[in-house]
Every structure is written in structure tokens, then in C-alpha cells.
Amino acid sequence: MHAVYCFDAYGTLFDVHAAVRRHAAAVGPDADRLSALWRTKQLEYSWTRALAGHYRDFWALTEDALDYAFAKVPSADTGLRGALLDAYRTLDAYPEVIDVLTTLKQAGAETAILSNGSQAMLDAAVAAARIGALLDAVLSVDSLATYKPLPAVYELVTTRFRVYPNKVSFQSSNRWDVAGATAAGFRAVWINRTREPDEYADLAPMATLPSLNGLESV
């Protein structure tokens, strides 16, 4: 059992495609394409902003990415913009999240989120999922005005919990995030929900799981 279990939020605890899924019938036959583009551009914009040193918070990037996705998918009604953004504030948590966090807390571990999401976004998602009581900290990049996978972001965890990096088990569904956490010295676990091929061979995860189930045994 590690001292601290830290989780990425979007794609790891919360299903990033749940927002479009809730309105799939209204979006139409290109709903999956819209959702995929929205997510891809959201991440791309965060990396560009970090490298350029020109911060714009994750909610603004989420809005920008949705606007781009609408422009690329003309079959989707832009009148749904507000509804989709409202749905993104309260994304569905994956079904195992509450049980896994409960198990970790009962075993005496400290738990946290470390996310590119803005603090307001994260607070809304945590409240909607009813997992606030199972978390010791919800850490946003807002305090640094940059984004993962820059090393300074991962240091938010070791500073908050006053532990060495090797005492942190870090979970993410994003392979690039796992690479960043590994480079920072964390014991990283890749939650490969969609069976993606591996990459970043020089920054390998400690373990790979298809979901968060069984994490306490890793």
C-alpha cells in the first residue's frame, strides 16, 4: 500500500465522452466524432498553452475545443453548445470509482486528484460524483498557470502531502500523463480503458490496468 494514491480526473475518474453521450440523439449521427474532436483539441490546446507560456484555464480551453469541434462537424447543431458544456461540468464517474476510493481510504491511504482542470470544474465534478468525502485533496494546475506534463505540476502532490515521489501511486488513463508522472518519479499506473497500444517505452508505467479495479493490489 502506497502512502498517497493520486488520480488524474478526466478520462480516469470521469468519462469525458459522457457529455455528448447524454445528448447523442440531438447531436446526430456524428456524435462520436464530435466528442472525439472535442477531447483531442482540449488536450492539444493545453500542451500548446503550456509550451507557449500563455495560460488560459481549462474551462476556457474546453469551450474553445467544443467550438472547433462544431466547426469541423457541421451536422451537429451549435444550439446544443450550452447543454453540452453544462453536461461537461457534471460528467459521469466510472462505475468503479466510489468502491475503489472507499477501499483505499479504509486501508489508510491518502487520496487526491491532480488535474489540468480548473478548480471550479473539478469542484463541480467531484460534487456531482459525490466523492468529495473520499478525497484528501483536489489539486488543480490553476495555482501554477501551466499544464501537465510539466514536472512542476506533479510536484504539487509531493508538496501537499510532504512525501517523496516514490511514495505516490499515480493513476491516469492518458499515456502521456503516465509518462510525465513516471519522469517525475511517481509509481505510475496506466488505466488503459480503451486498449490503446503502448508508447513512450523509456517512460514505462509500473503497471497497466483496464480499469481502476484491483488498484489496491498493485
Rank of each mutant, 00 (worst) to 15 (best):
M1K: 08
M1G: 14
Y5L: 08
C6L: 12
F7T: 09
F7H: 06
D8F: 10
A9N: 04
G11M: 05
T12R: 02
L13K: 07
D15S: 10
V16F: 09
H17I: 00
H17C: 01
A18F: 01
A19P: 12
V20R: 00
R21E: 15
R21W: 01
H23D: 10
H23K: 04
A26F: 02
P29Q: 07
P29T: 07
D30T: 13
R33D: 01
W38F: 09
K41C: 01
Q42W: 00
E44N: 07
E44D: 15
T48M: 09
A52N: 06
G53C: 06
G53M: 10
Y55C: 04
D57C: 11
D57P: 11
W59R: 02
A60P: 00
L61N: 13
E63R: 13
D67C: 04
K72R: 11
P74C: 07
A76E: 10
D77T: 11
R81H: 15
R81K: 14
A83G: 08
D86C: 03
A87D: 15
R89W: 15
D92V: 07
P95L: 05
I98T: 15
D99I: 02
D99Y: 00
V100R: 03
L101H: 04
L101C: 02
L104Y: 04
Q106N: 13
A107N: 12
G108C: 03
L114P: 10
L114E: 02
N116K: 02
N116A: 04
Q119L: 13
A120W: 06
A120E: 14
A120Y: 01
A124W: 01
A125I: 09
R130L: 03
I131D: 11
G132K: 11
L135D: 12
L139W: 08
D142V: 05
S143N: 00
S143R: 12
S143A: 15
S143C: 11
L144G: 01
A145H: 14
A145V: 04
T146W: 02
A152R: 13
V153R: 02
E155S: 14
L156S: 09
T158D: 13
T159D: 15
R160N: 08
R160F: 07
R162I: 01
V163A: 08
V163F: 03
K167I: 00
V168R: 05
F170N: 05
F170V: 12
R175G: 11
W176K: 00
V178G: 11
A179F: 05
A184I: 03
A184K: 02
G185A: 10
R187F: 00
R187I: 01
A188E: 04
A188H: 05
W190K: 06
I191N: 05
R193A: 12
D202H: 15
M206R: 13
T208A: 12
P210G: 12
P210A: 08
S211I: 09
L212S: 04
N213A: 14
L215D: 11
E216W: 03
V218L: 07
